[in-house]
Design a protein around this nucleic acid. Sequence first.
DNA 1: TCTCCTCGAGATCT
DNA 2: CTCGAGGAGA
Length: 314
Amino acid sequence: MPRKIRKFKGKSLAKDLAEYTVIDIETTGLSTEYDEIIEIGALKIKDGQVIDSYSQLVKPKYRIDEFITKLTGITNEMVADKPKFIDIGMDFVNFIGNSILLGQNVNFDINFLYDRIYRDLNMHLENDFVDILRFSRKLFPELKNRKLKTVAKHLNIESITSHRAIADCEVTYKCYEEQLKIIKNMETTPELLFKKKHSHTLDAKDIVATTNQFDQNHILYNSVCAFTGKLEKMPRKEAMQLVVNIGGKCGNSLTKSTNFLIVGNFDYWSGIKNGKSSKQKKAEKYILEGQDLKVIPEDVFYDMVLGESDHNNL
DNA sequence: TCTCCTCGAGATCT
DNA sequence: CTCGAGGAGA
């Protein structure tokens, strides 16, 4: 199991905040490993108003390339006499304090800052954060993309052409405040909007036969089938449909009336013990008790359903 | 019905 | 990274 990197990193929140700190950084590239911070911007917001700001250009170890200068407008000359991160890192840490951080795809900024603060100051950036990219994905799925600029335009917020930290903070916090208004108008809250949905749409009862031509001599006719594990060749729903179209029945779980347990793959399932799922172990117990139940692998199931000849062509 | 898990697909940041 | 789909188990 891969060890968790940045283990003290804060949690991602979806909240309607009265007080927070917007952050944005400019860097020499996208890689936290190889690229460097060249500008930090932050705005403290309270009740929708800017109450404090922090803006600092930072001198990187390596030169800024042309692409970044063109993108941000930040040149090597501009940072030549600026402090290195190690000299101003503490100022930034003090500025944000323990406030909740907010930004567009803010994981990008947090990861850069987390690593830099740890390396230079031997401290952990533990602040919780709000990523407004999550908001726009939820609210504006119809837009061609959810880049800050696109979202700002959609919300009639003016955004300047240059990618500079403080300017982007301005746009970001305005986008957040506007999106909060939209959520309020929907008579919901961010918490409700991001509440995990129950996506268990697969209920065996919902699967009905698409034919009434049944072969009453088929081994699965009038039988009760259950599944365990992930099937290789089709979604479980399709397999259940096959059973039902033969005139069999399906259940979500293994019961006293189950006749066939079809076993798929569960190599991926780390919680599995002795290579057998609980359904399989339950089935073995029922068989010992004399139940008319067979445990069959996926391949055998296809032989039964489709016939030997078709099986080879799958 | 609820919580926990895994995987694959799809974006966004400079 | 985040989400949704789809599993298991209680």
